[in-house]
Design a protein around this nucleic acid. Structure first.
Lengths: 340, 340
DNA sequence: CGAGTTCCTGCAATCGATTTCAGTATCGAA
DNA sequence: TTCGATACTGAAATCGATTGCAGGAACTCG
């Protein structure tokens, strides 16, 4: 049913070769011939077969994108940014989800490989370093996190700075016992945010205490458990403020606080990482470190496409590492600590 | 340096033809030969070129999916359901976003067409009826909404029943003036939910009043404006309860109520359509009609794949229309109306 | 007018996997 | 021992678009 280039050529009374050139390299074909071909193509509503073209040209205008969890609004925003940027340059995207699962990531990469994408944008899972060997000569940009690969291009936010600013805000309010719930040690963003937390404490002359820092494993339930553990102590030992490393765990922390009947911000101040709809809808509205997720993803995709279209080899190009800065948004969930 | 089937064949000392058969139709090849081939394939970590295969077989194991807005958590859930179902059967998915824009939808379909997908799952935009002609012989399943095409397969929820149940809950509490914010008349779900609202009112012997029903155009801002208009009246004319047609508009309505300083549920009861994280996190938690979005999408994809693999022709198969039921979740945002 | 360009077009090869068709080897039965 | 059936294997065509190369026409310039 699909009309092929041969049909167009026949209708335009030229060879398939000429038809092909008329459509994709118009300047190499005489004006009048070109007209005949384009008309024929329009008349038959010809659509080139991407598979055939891709086979010959070794790769179609296709990108792979691997994100960690489409249900997380932040990641969904990344997905949208990638797609919009790709669509604008007339690329299509194969999108995969890993659910933070290294094995799923591997399968996604294998499946992707057969489609011969021109490039890859990935939010690397903890095991990405190994997995990415599967596609070692595919131009790749790492988004939001770093896999730790030596010559990778990465587009991330300034996690250290964002975390530092958040915790500085808390110390400036007079908090001394500030807890943190971070993701996990095998994800670079979590490590960096923890680093920012430590730097801010140090800057305020507050000693780092291991018992105030727990992993929440990036998920709501982990955040709830961690917060419960941190906060379920007598008032004089309990942290007076909490810094939470991502949006899902922040929800968990809020649930834990409700279970323990702690009030915000009178009993406890809280700052989250990642802004979201509900953060400003809550009462009180949650103070957060906002990330420019859409811009980040858009930029990652553009970076990749520029690299592809300039024909710069993956190998020779010096790895670029771009950091966008975060925005601190003060709302109503932070206040001076309760009087002792 | 993609390894091709020819390389595998050479290493296994067989012809490419045999190598191909050994991998895809094992029973037609002698055991010992098959072993040699599979070993060679593993050794070279051979990955078939989907483009070449797709070219020859006229179509790769690829599906198209078009959803309306990946940033809406409900739609993101649909995306995930589709992907999981497809991955389980070893299909890959081209995912597109329309942002409810008919023109974007058209471009997505055109782009998709060139990739020769085996099938399509679509959340139709208002203009889908026209756009879908572009791919008229592609097996298609409509998800969540109906385009109105005669012989379409659709997988939706029971919007009428869900809305009816929500409004019955309100009438049972004693509400008489119940407002509704619906999406728009050109989207089937919105029309059906409005229908359910009318049926529930009728069942309770309450007259339908046009001035209590406004369109919010599916978006947060539309919902806010509509709610503001409905609620900005003296207490004795103001609705005592509000039924909102989707999650985004519910957020808008909540913002409007905050602007007008109306308290939930003492001044006003509210029921939303679509459950979400924040609905149960809010204080008070919001009563909603929940949709089985993941199941819906998973089922849509399975339906499509079954149809494909049973080789049932698109034309002859009688159109299936599946409805899943919604779940009413009573939380704390509904209560009897304030005494007059 | 002839040689050298320039411009345009078509032939045929190519990408990688699948599949038809024909050919060889093996085995059982007569 | 020979014939036919069965089981495997390989050569070559095919899918649809692109592209290197060669050839013909037209045009320029001496």
């Amino acid at each position: 049913m699909m009309t092929s280039l041969k049909d167009v050529a026949k209708l335009a009374r030229v060879s398939p070769a000429t038809a092909s050139r008329a459509l994709s390299k118009p300047e190499t074909v005489a004006f009048i011939t070109r007209e005949r071909v384009t008309n024929a193509a329009k008349q038959l509503s010809y659509q080139p077969n991407v598979l055939a073209r891709g086979l010959r040209q070794r790769g179609s205008r296709t990108l792979g994108a691997i994100i960690s969890d489409i249900l997380n609004p932040g990641q969904a925003t990344l997905a949208k940014g990638i797609q919009d940027a790709a669509a604008k340059r007339d690329y299509t995207v194969f999108m995969f989800n890993t659910d933070e699962d290294t094995e799923k990531e591997r399968r996604a990469l294998e499946s992707l490989r057969g489609h011969l994408p021109q490039g890859l944008i990935i939010v690397p899972s903890p095991g990405a370093r190994e997995n990415l060997k599967l596609v070692s000569n595919l131009p790749t940009v790492e988004l939001d996190r770093s896999s730790g690969l030596r010559d990778a291009h990465t587009i991330m936010v300034d996690n250290v700075g964002g975390a530092r600013e958040a915790v500085q805000h808390l110390t400036a309010l007079g908090h001394k016992r500030i807890g943190m719930i971070f993701g996990s040690m095998d994800v670079s963003t979590a490590v960096e945010r923890l680093q920012g937390y430590r730097e801010a404490l140090e800057g305020a002359g507050i000693a780092y205490r291991e018992d105030l820092v727990l992993s929440g494993n990036h998920r709501e339930e982990g955040g709830r458990v961690a917060a419960h553990t941190l906060l379920n102590r007598p008032a004089h030992q309990r942290p007076t403020a909490l810094f939470v490393g991502n949006n899902e765990m922040t929800i968990g922390a809020l649930l834990a606080m409700r279970e323990l009947e702690l009030r915000i911000p009178s009993d406890l101040s809280i700052v989250g990482f990642d802004d979201s709809r509900w953060a400003k809808l809550m009462q009180p509205a949650i103070t957060v470190v906002a990330q420019p997720a859409y811009e980040l993803a858009y930029l990652a995709c553009e970076t990749l496409l520029n690299r592809l279209e300039n024909g710069v080899s993956h190998q020779t190009m010096r790895p670029a590492s771009i950091r966008l800065s975060t925005t601190f948004i003060k709302r109503d969930s932070t206040a001076p600590p309760p009087p002792t």
